[in-house]
């Protein structure tokens, strides 16, 4: 499918088609008319780095909660298919269960901790609130990551990495590995369907046999990967590709895929804003002790209610 560049003129009838067509992103689908695609892939990569890393400088759960909302709002704005996010639901719940169970069972032995006697157990305020703040920090970082993978394709990632001048071999390996993950899943489906066509009924199998069967799927999959490696490397060799990306006889190979995308004024403005916010948050936290857990309004309120100094 041809790339739709931001500068490409779009007629009304083409617009109608675009609203129905979807890009397959790394973990979902997004309409090709999504406003995200009005920005260069490198701008989206900066957004990913910002949302994925800036919570490290913020230990105020309210702000991290807002960052989660920002990521969700961006997903809605970008018209991402939110049904794909269901796969993360068990993770979101079990992470909370794990973190709070661990901190209740192993709160530590600091004498300054304030015990709170519940009906059956005693919990300690400081480690529990620390865990609460850590949970929202984690959720903020994860939502930024999920946003990126929900709204970008392997191709967007490749263009973004090349735009930041990552060496050819590194960007090629990352791009091919993500594509290979998709091919690997396709092969997996083919093998399963071939077995089912021969009458294999996995529902009638014991769980131990199902696990054994699952493991045995890997044998043909690795065989296919080996054969594919030979084919791809022969194809690359035939087209004159080298590990360095240089053309024999000197010079660099023209980067066709990157030439399809142009960085525009809106990209520059967005990148400057993201970098400024990122640096601002980092300096505020590291040098001026801002965005720390004691700044949390909820923490201040609870300490007041519980008479904790």
């Amino acid at each position: 499918m041809a790339a739709i560049t931001p500068s490409e003129p779009v007629s009304t009838s083409t617009q109608e088609i675009h609203t129905k067509k979807m890009w397959k992103t790394l973990v979902g689908h997004v309409p090709i008319s999504s406003p995200f695609y009005q920005f260069h892939p490198v701008t989206r990569l900066y957004l990913f780095v910002f949302l994925g890393v800036v919570p490290l400088f913020i230990f105020v759960p309210e702000i991290n909660f807002l960052l989660v909302l920002v990521s969700m709002a961006l997903m809605l704005w970008g018209r991402a298919d939110l049904r794909g996010l269901r796969i993360y639901a068990p993770m979101v719940v079990t992470v909370a269960i794990f973190m709070f169970t661990v901190v209740i069972l192993a709160p530590g032995k600091d004498p300054t901790y304030t015990p709170l006697h519940m009906s059956l157990i005693t919990i300690y305020y400081q480690p529990v609130f620390f865990t609460f703040a850590a949970y929202w920090r984690l959720m903020a970082m994860l939502s930024g990551t999920i946003l990126y993978f929900s709204t970008n394709r392997e191709r967007d990632m490749l263009v973004a990495l090349r735009a930041v001048r990552l060496p050819f071999v590194a960007s090629y390996v990352i791009g091919l590995s993500i594509r290979a993950a998709g091919m690997f899943m396709e092969d997996f489906r083919t093998i399963r369907e071939a077995e089912q066509a021969r009458g294999l009924d996995t529902k009638a199998m014991r769980i131990s046999d199902q696990v054994k069967l699952y493991v045995m799927y890997l044998v043909p999959l690795f065989s296919i990967a080996l054969r594919r490696a030979e084919e791809i490397s022969n194809a690359l060799f035939a087209r004159g590709y080298t590990v360095t990306g240089r053309v024999k006889g000197g010079g660099q190979r023209r980067d066709y895929i990157r030439s399809l995308y142009a960085i525009r004024t809106r990209d520059v403005i967005a990148i400057v804003i993201l970098i400024s916010l990122f640096v601002g948050a980092g300096i505020s936290n590291l040098f001026f002790n801002v965005f720390v857990i004691t700044d949390s309004p909820l923490n201040i309120y609870l300490r007041g209610v519980l008479n904790i100094p």
Binding site: I87, A180, A225, S233
Partner: peptide
Amino acid sequence: GIIHVVMLALFTGIGIVVGTFGSL
């Protein structure tokens, strides 16, 4: 050679699938 670079990418792809399913 190139085959090692390609194998690195394909093996990483296998790892992505196995690792993602394992984590989920």
